[in-house]
Write a protein that binds this DNA or RNA. Structure first.
Lengths: 234, 234
DNA sequence: TTGCACTTGCGTACAGCGTGCGCAGCTGCG
DNA sequence: CGCAGCTGCGCACGCTGTACGCAAGTGCAA
């Protein structure tokens, strides 16, 4: 009732009520939808109505859906932490790699977008992330820091992408990860039959699949870091 | 005029003329479109009319567009070669990695599909590829062949995905790779300014970008293989 | 105080998408 | 000869991204 009266009060109320549809709020809400429902469920109409706005209103703040995705990607890069260079470069790189992986698994759509559009983004968070990563390898004393960066980043993105895709499959199935593994096992065994070197492994359902994945990631990373260490002492 | 007469001849002519819309021919044509126009340009309607068929006719042979993409992925995995295990496991793995990369770059949509759907495919070509890869690491004498597989595969897929995404960007820009690099350089420099460890490198436009990419790929792979070699001698 | 430029949001509309459904015609078997 | 089953197609539904033009509100200039 009082709300209907147009007055200073109403206007003051309105500001905290509706953040006025800014670019930042759009990106934030987009990430929420992406995380909750996946990339193919994000539509401009749905996003608009979640912000109490029409679909086309969003286009005042964002040129295109693709640009919105770019902004979301850069935003998410801001969640990745890279430590300041310390005495143990391996620990630092490992921490950065794990943070990358954790972020990619928290936002499984990240990999899809990156795979389709590449890293020609140049957003501020992405640049800062690259810079901090470069600092790590430079401080460690590598003759060619670039090589360290792209080798580690290649491994990390590849591994994270595969994992994220799997998690997406799990999410879409509605089951837990362990359940889906169990359900797919017969088919996998059938498919692996006749191939001498494929096991479709593991009857021991003791170990948590998520733990297994993280161990795999760490093991592979260790291999990469060992390889890189060789280029240091030489 | 003669063509209008319904007869054995007409029917016999028809067979080589129209391969009758089989699953295989649909997948083949889909790959052609995907290669030529990219993943977001593939529509069931377009695919149908290219095969002289209505859009919905395809659904007699393929349950859904997503399934069609899975079939295309497996088909393309058939193009990847993995050598039989020889005396030099590093050479063998390198050859397999380069073939994977070459295939992924020839079909840049591959990475997008894999990133979205993961490797829960179990198609025959994919299984055969994995098996041959496993054979390589087993023959090399690794205690844990799996680790070699997923480490190398992680690096290779990550690197190839990034490259494929970049090539997609290049293709969409309409320019050559070198031109696009030159065009993006100012923006990249601007973005890199203020970051101590980022160069936005290279004024020497002498070297072919494609060659640079391949060298990077090989260098990183060398690092990974060096790391793996350490787990062998131990 | 008045007026004007500018920003912001919205409604409508268009072309295109994946695909469910039911009908028509051809093929091969009894 | 007739019928079952497979193949292809036209239509229709609900959805998509987004171009366009109008209305309302805002802040600065005169």
């Amino acid at each position: 009732m009082a709300a209907k009266i147009p007055s200073v009060w109403a206007r003051e109320q309105r500001q905290p009520d509706q953040p006025a549809l800014s670019r930042a709020s759009i990106v934030r809400e987009a990430i929420t939808v992406l995380d909750a429902e996946g990339i193919e469920q994000l539509s401009m109409r749905k996003l608009g109505s979640r912000l109490n706005a029409g679909a086309t209103s969003l286009y005042r703040h964002v040129a295109t859906k693709e640009e919105l995705l770019e902004l979301a990607v850069d935003e998410v890069f801001g969640e990745m932490t890279v430590p300041d260079p310390g005495p143990d470069w391996r620990a630092d790189v490992t921490a950065a790699a794990l943070s990358f992986r954790a972020t990619a698994l928290r936002h499984p759509w990240l990999s899809s977008v990156l795979a389709q559009a590449g890293l020609a983004y140049l957003g501020p968070n992405l640049m800062a992330h690259s810079n901090r990563l470069a600092a790590l390898f430079a401080a460690a004393g590598f003759a060619d820091p670039d090589r360290g960066i792209y080798t580690v980043l290649g491994y990390v993105t590849g591994m994270s992408t595969t994992e994220a895709a799997w998690l997406t499959t799990v999410a879409r199935s509605g089951a837990t990860e362990a359940e889906l593994v169990a359900r797919l096992l017969p088919a996998a065994r059938r498919a692996a039959a006749g191939y001498a070197h494929l096991s479709a492994a593991s009857g021991d359902d003791e170990t948590d699949p998520a733990e297994v994945r993280e161990t795999k990631f760490r093991n592979g990373l260790e291999v990469v870091l060992n390889g890189l260490a060789l280029t240091l002492t030489r």
